[in-house]
Computed example of a mutant assay.
Amino acid sequence: MAKVNQTILLKMQSPVALIPQLAGHLIASGGKRLRPMLTLATSKMCGYEGDRHAELAACVEFIHSATLLHDDVVDESDLRRGLETANAVWGNKASVLVGDFLFSRSFELMVADGSLEVLAILSNASSVIAEGEVLQLTTANDMDTTEDSYMQVIVAKTAALFAASCEISAVITKGSKTEQAALKSYGKNLGIVFQLIDDVLDFSAEQEKLGKSVGDDFREGKVTLPIVLASRRGSEEERSFWRRTIEDLDQTDADLKTAIDLMNKHGALKDSIERARHYGAIAKDALAIFPDDDYRKALTGIVDFCINRAY
């Protein structure tokens, strides 16, 4: 991770002073570095001895950071991990352009690695993430969104990069196609777990411990799984509450508490966590073909860590 952080610091430098300033604000804001950590750990589990994995882990973090900068602009977010977002400090234009810079840096790192297969995996993930974000725009404020549509969004916008960050490890270690598919499955299902729990946390006091505001998704009219389940299971009167608050964004201060009460009444939060456990089990099972060493134990533990954030 020290090598990854060193690469990140080096590659975000630019003679245009605002670029390292704004990028540094985001990168130093206390993220978990989960995606690059996955690249490192899966590479080591596959027996990798070189240092390409550190450069590629930095590349993965740049892709992630670029999407965060763009996301915060789209969502008009003022806070990320308890700190002001880059767009709140420097404005939307600068955030979008520095996000573009970080994307470009990630592609420079991919090209420097020299593997066309790695380039194919990471560039495909980048386009899938963008598709997921656009798809989320089309489902926002739409209470006709189904669980399948919601899953399509999170597989694209979150799970794709988790999957890619693990899959590239099999390429640089010259692993078999079976190992590559297993790592991709592990990453994808872990990404689904991560996003499901994130969406549950939007309606939980635990969210405050993570440095985020409770109810952000609700206020923005994002249709997440807890909302889909509570609405589908509710009465006509309850569904009209969801249409007013999510579709029309006509919200009062008391509505967030009402939303959480309805979710608890219909078991929407509990069942969303159960969905996460299901995908977590798939992620763990995908690792069964690898040696049961400390790296595999750590990767299995990450699944539990992601689920346990909900408690």
Rank of each mutant, 00 (worst) to 15 (best):
E117W: 02
S95G: 03
R243Y: 13
G187L: 04
P36H: 01
H25L: 14
A181H: 14
I227H: 04
Q136G: 13
H278A: 15
A130W: 03
G221S: 08
I27E: 00
K209W: 12
L190M: 09
I27Q: 01
K257N: 06
E220P: 03
A283N: 03
S213K: 02
V155S: 04
Y150H: 14
C306N: 10
M143Y: 15
A163I: 09
T224P: 01
R81Y: 06
L225E: 04
A17T: 03
I63E: 04
Y48S: 05
D250M: 03
D72A: 09
T178L: 14
A140N: 15
N141D: 11
S272C: 10
S106Y: 07
C46T: 06
G215L: 09
G24A: 01
R243S: 10
M1R: 08
D285K: 12
I273Q: 10
T85H: 08
E108C: 07
T252Y: 03
D250I: 04
F305P: 00
H70Q: 10
I302Y: 03
E236Q: 12
S126H: 03
Y186C: 02
L183E: 14
I168V: 13
D304P: 00
V214Y: 04
V74P: 04
A125Y: 11
L196C: 09
V73S: 11
E117M: 01
